[in-house]
């Protein structure tokens, strides 16, 4: 689509959407957000880019095929579940690491739940983009 307004808007929007998607992903553990919604927002960024500049460009911007993104995400999600094995827990038991924790401070909590969320993020991003790219290219 050759629209100057859309092109100019895209420059702003895509960067914003991508940053916002990561923000949503990270904030999701205790507040609304998370991997699924983050992945959707991230996918929206690429979809806007694809509409403005064509799927060819969008695929280049993504660098890896979207199907592979989704499958790697699935692998990461599974890995998050399997991490419990290293600590002798049952499958999918959340593992927590508190960085810089002291007697009074809790420190920065990192968990296998976050890893799982990142997996979900990639699965959603990858599968939405697989669908939309295929539909966009089918329309041409």
């Amino acid at each position: 689509m050759n629209s100057i307004i859309l092109l100019a808007g895209t420059r702003l929007l895509v960067a914003l959407l991508l940053v916002f998607s990561v923000f949503m992903l990270l904030r999701g553990h205790n507040t609304p957000g998370g991997g699924f919604i983050g992945g959707l927002i991230g996918a929206t960024g690429f979809v806007v880019y694809a509409i403005a500049c064509g799927t060819e460009q969008a695929r280049q911007a993504l660098r890896v095929p979207p199907e592979n993104v989704a499958m790697v995400g699935l692998g990461i999600g599974l890995f998050a579940g399997v991490m419990a094995a290293f600590f002798g827990d049952a499958f999918f038991v959340g593992q927590w690491l508190f960085i810089g924790a002291t007697e009074t401070e809790k420190g920065l909590p990192l968990s296998s739940v976050l890893v799982f969320d990142i997996g979900v993020y990639l699965v959603v991003l990858g599968s939405i983009l697989t669908l939309t790219f295929a539909l966009e290219e089918g329309a041409d």
Partner: peptide
């Protein structure tokens, strides 16, 4: 013990990921 029940599900999923990437 709990892992022996999960493995027949987890292994095919991991295989699917590897098989897809290759």
């Amino acid at each position: 013990m709990s892992w022996i029940l999960g493995l027949p599900i987890i292994i095919p999923f991991f295989t699917a990921v590897i098989a897809f990437l290759t």
